[in-house]
Write a protein that binds this DNA or RNA. Structure first.
Lengths: 138, 138
DNA sequence: CTGCACCTTGTAGTAACTACAAGGTCAAGC
DNA sequence: GCTTGACCTTGTAGTTACTACAAGGTGCAG
């Protein structure tokens, strides 16, 4: 599988795939006789994972951490737990915020269906005070 | 409330707040007699909303769209529905991915607690084929 | 009245892409 | 067999969303 096809399969531009390789997120794939990158299903999985994680708001460094967990299951339990727990806390926080946002957007779409114009509280719903607790840590 | 305090209240650097103002995400606040920006609770809410949304992986343009929904409830229903529905689809997709990721991370942390080293399937869990359907649209 | 923390504008650097230039590769059609 | 066009290569420069720093003004505590 060449870079263009890999890109179409994962919704990624060729340039971005090469960029991930340069930055160490993707291992350099084998090359064909004419020096084209040649991707297998394993690399496609990894690429798909990177794209999804980035869309969820994780940094490239965090994506690397997650992939390291998957790649090397023989790391000391302490390390795995530390990384996984931290990522888990972030995932939970994102889930909470997204559920609140979903509720508000659903209400908006519903009221539109009935021809009425609802007042929209998207801002208030995410402007709660959890963030203040987070920023205390700095 | 001056810019520094507003920043501490929302986990945002002063520079970033000024940047949001330049880019039109935040309205220019009133100034004090000594030309300092003076923020009220309304602006703080808005700022908090921007920060949360960005962490959830929404672009500044999407954040603007969402805020426009909240600011102007008298827009034609068609417009509101189009924007809200699109954002809702994205929120749902993010929720699905995050739930899968959470499950995998929880498993990892649990097995660590019992001293065993689990095999980690974080990559596989997000490498499913939903993305292929999305990329068909282009 | 002088530190010191804060504010102002402006410019330059970073992360994560994204686009484009200049040129090599290769299967399809005449 | 040769050209056309879609693909690939490396490299550089532009974009988005910050982030850091410089040079200087503001304001309150001691």
């Amino acid at each position: 599988m060449r870079i263009g096809e890999a890109g179409r399969a994962t919704g990624t531009k060729s340039e971005t795939i090469r960029y991930y390789e340069r930055e160490g997120l993707l291992p350099p794939p084998p090359r064909t006789s004419s020096n084209y990158r040649d991707y297998g299903p394993e690399e496609i999985s990894r690429l798909r994972f990177i794209r999804r994680s980035r869309k969820l708001g994780f940094s490239m460094a965090q994506v690397k951490e997650l992939m390291a967990l998957a790649d090397d299951p023989d790391q000391p339990c302490e390390t795995v737990d530390k990384i996984a727990s931290a990522q888990l806390r972030e995932v939970e926080a994102k889930l909470t915020d997204l559920r609140a946002l979903r509720k508000e957007l659903t209400k908006l779409v519903e009221s539109c269906k009935h021809g009425t114009i609802a007042e929209c509280r998207v801002i208030e719903v995410l402007a709660g005070n959890r963030e203040e607790l987070v920023s205390q840590r700095h």
